[in-house]
């Protein structure tokens, strides 16, 4: 299929995400809550970045600011040298709670982004079917979301976001509410699709194993206020057979990093107490 190569060539032009000196304060009931303080990070195009940290450290807030759903109090966010100031098609978001439009079938849900953007070319090229197949829902194209399981609905959301060809895919704890087996399947599926399409991805997670498994880079945030505490590179995975979770979990590098992050998490717990 000629069309599968096209996103790859588009990806070659991508420069990636840069977050510079971003802080965020919320006003709630007269008090000012500092959710994030001076975050600076960069994610090169085609890479998977993971925001990891204890709950309440501002992961969702940072992701929502990158999506343009929230404005930073200070600093700026750029995607491929364009300033982010409002939501847009270039930054697709997959939310935590499997949001599909209940009145649209699986196919119509996946086609939604292309329809509202009047992207006739992509619709005619078979993009919708391609991504329905990519997430393994070809048997359910005409089903409504209420007929699907949570995992399947999350796949609809992923397919819908990818079919829109975002330059950056944002995901907020996308597999948090799924059972472990389904979660592992979805992680593999995500890596598979994302590698084929060469999408840049920023995922929020609070699970160490998931973060190390998915991420090329893991950004560890600390709490109160949210600060970038450490950037962890997972280059060791290059030497491992790809897609082999067992080899990954048994490697010395994984165990070392897991223990290291576990200690970071524990320190966070102590500081909070």
């Amino acid at each position: 299929m000629p069309y599968i190569s096209s996103p790859a060539s588009k990806a070659a032009l991508k420069a990636g995400l840069s977050v510079t000196g971003v802080s965020k304060e919320f006003q709630s009931r007269g008090r000012t809550v500092q959710a994030l303080d001076d975050i600076t990070l960069a994610l090169p195009a085609g890479k998977v970045g993971v925001l990891l940290g204890p709950s309440g450290c501002g992961k969702s807030t940072l992701l929502r600011m990158v999506a343009g759903l929230e404005q930073p109090s200070a600093g700026n966010i750029c995607l491929n040298d364009r300033m982010v100031d409002q939501p847009g098609r270039d930054r697709g978001m997959v939310f935590q709670d499997y949001t599909s439009f209940p009145w649209l079938s699986v196919r119509e849900n996946v086609a939604y982004g292309l329809e509202i953007n009047r992207d006739r070319d992509a619709l005619n090229e078979g993009t919708v079917d391609h991504f329905i197949r990519a997430v393994g829902l070809e048997k359910f194209t005409d089903a409504y979301p209420h007929q699907l399981s949570g995992g399947m609905r999350q796949r609809v959301a992923i397919a819908r976001t990818l079919a829109n060809y975002p330059e950056l895919l944002l995901m907020d704890e996308p597999f948090g509410a799924l059972d472990p087996e389904t979660r592992w399947q979805m992680q593999d599926l995500l890596l598979d699709v994302v590698r084929k399409e060469r999408t840049t991805v920023l995922v929020v997670s609070h699970d160490i194993e998931e973060a190390l498994y998915l991420g090329d880079t893991v950004f560890f945030l600390s709490r109160h206020p949210g600060r970038l505490k450490e950037i962890i590179d997972t280059g060791f995975k290059a030497a491992l057979p790809s897609g082999d979770r067992e080899a990954f979990l048994q490697s010395d590098d994984y165990r070392r990093l897991e223990l290291h992050i576990r200690r970071l998490m524990r320190d966070e717990g102590r500081n909070a107490a």
Partner: peptide, 27 residues
């Protein structure tokens, strides 16, 4: 109308008018 459906439409590139009709009204 759930806020998250509106935000989903926005991050897919939906403008105000599109979101009003295809999400808020439809929901």
């Amino acid at each position: 109308t759930p806020k998250v459906l509106i935000e989903t439409a926005k991050t897919l590139g939906g403008g105000r008018r599109t979101t009003l009709w295809t999400v808020v009204f439809r929901h």
